[in-house]
Design a protein around this nucleic acid. Structure first.
Length: 436
RNA sequence: CGGAGCGUAGCUCAGCCUGGUAGAGCGCUAGCUUUGGGAGCUAGAUGUCGUAGGUUCGAUUCCUAUCGCUCCGACCA
């Protein structure tokens, strides 16, 4: 993409409303713009990041055996009356009446809808296990939205729902999501630590929050420092027994403030990490809470009905965009991990209008595109300082700098955004390096 | 929901206390110069001073209401 034709409105100054670094940088780098309290427009750069994050989530969910669907954002209130949550959920749920005065709502979560899909379409135990997920927008009318996309009212979420015939199989479904989550966050360059958590109003007794440590995190968390270095499982067979992996991760102390046991934690001594964290994922097992209330059953092997055990598994996709920035930035701007970066390479033409520079840039731009590398090409007639500052702010992982001085020697500059290491290379060498 | 603050140009903000024809920097437009880390000069465009009432000869300024946004707290599958 040529920057001269891109809609990437960057800001030199920080808007007053933004208090934390990820919010400031998302506004300054032109990823988002606020529409109303806790509600945001995602501009082209932000949209690309969001799509990259969603794609990683999607690939790992699919690998773990979940199937993607799309459920409605606007739901019927009737279903929520069945589960009893229409009255329980409170003012956080945005309630709407349609033209026929029917009670509708903008979905804050989808247990009711997915259970309705299940009971209408799944009739036999032989169709289980089943895990359905979507990556879709939710609305929760938070009392106090804040921190940009970290606690918005409308947000993009991956929510998965598992159905199993008994607890052992439900536990396996839980473990599948547990392991998939470890891998998902790691692919985004994040270390997310599973911590014992309160299951909250949704109910249930098996629950972990996946927490990224960050100073600006909303909750206080405590964990064994060994969890910061534990290797992420590779080559996982999701059909096989995952209990050993889960046990390995849950054997070390890790808890959010609500579940924190100071006496137990104190025994860790110097191994205890006490920090703040951002919740990027949350998994629950809640048994038959919804399937029973909504009379979702399947026929069992002996002909009697089985009420399936369920779990739900959430990832805050739009929140992750903020969390990644919290974890990876410097004074100059965002430092995107390659896996989620809106572009992999930023090509800077130091002297637009200079025939040699223009030709070299155009040539490299075309060749990188042909090699399948996403490039943001700053072809604007701006001063070098402006271009450097802008590319640092946007935070693409690799910067290629082409200017008249270097070009005279047949050299261009390749800079790594993370760390700032630079090297002078030939154009072919840069092409080679970025194409692999 | 309790407490506090802020709404003036696209952005950051001054002006308001003490009422009298709307300001700065950055950005934007045009031109010239400049060009390896957010340049310089010149010329220009841009505002229902959040909205509605009230007081006054006169309101961005004082009063009231209202809407919006932010922060602290409570809350947060």
């Amino acid at each position: 993409m040529r920057l001269s034709r891109s809609f990437i409105p960057t800001l030199k100054e920080t808007p007053t409303e933004a208090q934390i670094v990820s919010h400031r940088l998302m506004l300054r780098a032109g990823l988002i713009r606020q529409h109303a309290a806790g509600i945001y427009n995602w501009l082209p750069l932000g949209t690309r990041v969001l799509q990259n994050i969603a794609q990683i989530v999607r690939e790992e969910q699919n690998a773990a055996g979940a199937q993607e669907i799309i459920m409605p954002t606007v739901q019927s209130g009737e279903l929520w009356k069945e589960s009893g949550r229409y009255d329980d959920y409170g003012p956080e749920m945005l309630r709407i009446k349609d033209r026929h005065e029917r009670d509708m709502l903008y979905g804050p979560t989808h247990e009711e809808v997915v259970t309705d899909i299940f009971r209408n379409n799944v009739k036999s135990y032989r169709d289980l296990p089943l895990n359905l997920y979507q990556i879709h927008w939710k609305f929760r009318d938070e009392v106090r939205p804040r921190f940009g996309v970290m606690r918005g009212r409308e947000f993009l979420m991956k929510d998965a729902y598992s159905f199993d015939t008994d607890f052992a199989r439900a536990k396996h479904a839980y473990n599948q999501m547990f392991v998939a989550y470890l891998r998902t966050f790691a692919r985004m360059g994040l270390r997310a630590i599973p911590m014992r958590a309160d299951s909250g109003p949704i109910g249930g007794d098996m629950s972990h929050e996946f927490i990224v440590l960050a100073e600006t995190g909303e909750s206080a968390v405590f964990c064994h420092k060994g969890l910061l270095e534990k290797p992420i499982p590779q080559g996982v067979n999701y059909e096989g027994d995952l209990q050993a992996i889960v046990d390995d991760w849950t054997s070390l102390y890790a808890a959010t403030e609500e579940k924190h046991d100071a006496a137990v934690a104190a025994k860790l001594g110097a191994d205890l990490v006490s920090a703040r964290g951002i919740e990027v994922g949350h998994i629950f097992h809640f048994g038959t809470k919804y399937s029973a209330a909504m009379k979702a059953t399947v026929a069992g092997p002996d002909g009697t009905n089985i009420t399936p055990m369920m779990g739900s598994y959430g990832i805050g996709v739009s929140r992750l965009a903020g969390a990644i920035i919290e974890a990876s930035h410097d004074d100059a701007g965002i430092i995107w991990p390659e896996s989620v970066a809106p572009y992999r390479v930023g090509l800077i033409n130091l002297k637009t209008g200079d025939a040699a520079c223009d030709a070299a840039c155009a040539d490299l731009y075309a060749k990188l595109a042909a090699a399948g590398v996403s490039v943001l090409y700053d072809d604007r007639d701006e001063r070098p300082g402006v271009k450097f500052a802008n590319m640092d702010l946007i935070g693409v992982p690799w910067h290629v700098v082409i200017g008249p001085k270097g070009l005279a020697k047949g050299q261009i500059e390749l800079k790594r955004r993370a760390g700032g290491a630079r090297e002078e290379l030939s154009i072919d060498a840069v092409l080679q390096k970025l194409s692999t």
